[in-house]
Design a protein around this nucleic acid. Sequence first.
DNA 1: TACCCGTGGCT
DNA 2: TAGCCAAGGGT
Length: 347
Amino acid sequence: MPSPAALLAWYDRNRRRMPWRTLPGETPDPYRVWLSEIMLQQTTVTAVIPYFERFLTLFPTVETLAAADETRVMAAWAGLGYYARARNLHACAREIANLGGKFPTDIETLRALPGIGPYTANAVAAIAFNQPVIPVDGNVERIAARLFAIETPLPAARPALAKAAATLNHTPESHHRAADFAQALFDLGATICTPRPLCALCPWSPHCAAHRAGIADQLPRRAPKKTRPTRHGAHFWLQDSSGQVLLRRRPPSGLLGGMTELPGTDWRATPFPAQEAHRLAPMPAAWRHRGKVHHVFTHFELHLDVYAATVPAIAATGFLRPAAALHGEALPSVMRKCVAVARQEPA
DNA sequence: TACCCGTGGCT
DNA sequence: TAGCCAAGGGT
């Protein structure tokens, strides 16, 4: 069994600094821990940092976040992806505010809050409240798969990996450093036990079954992925003579739920010929093809044609915003690409 | 259980 | 370059 002390000693020399982390001796703020954990779900540290800083400026406490309009929260989240996280973040903040602004400390109560699953409940309990539980993310799954040479492919191996990971912090001394231990696992997974591991630098390599067997770089195994289908659509930049642009709000749930978009067609398997696209435009106009947008979602690939027109007055469903003030809108990345193409800006 | 849900950087 | 994948949750 690998030694918790060896990992903590490695962490004391190699810990990464991040805006949501405390220095040794400081007391963590549960709001910052929670906010960072939601943002970091399936999202890289470098992508999160500017959003985390901006959120703390706009919403410095859970109460200010709870009191904010949902549209402001969605606009602040725009570009970070997985927008259900932002809706759940806001709903969760309101529940916490109703609890007097105090975060629950026990796993079960945390787990019941919107947007908090088994991973995040353990992460908040460990990092904010120093409880000796292991948040099992992709890093920890990879470490556990290698330490114990678990060859079952993901996702079927998940229960076994979680069970193995739960044994890692097993001494009274490391229990006192539960927050450090959890973050040490993240840092080990992010810098040493990476998909292509640097076993020569690993404090646990003497106890790693996969390293001993020479198969560390092959674990964890994964089930083969499904192919990603392609979809097509067309979106329309419609401007009036005063410089107002027509926008729409997407349905509150589902893909890009609640986010702002340029009006467009549905997204289907076959392309839209120009004639058909013009017929589906928000109103008749001298539509000009401005270019194409390519965007890859998790489960399909999207090709969009972008058309633009200027009319004296806009008569169509949606809402109008000044073309110069779109930066304040909750435009997801795919729509920002469309805007850039419509304006002939470099992507 | 299996699928839905974004984005951008890296190899 | 085409895939891989990153501190997952909801249903």
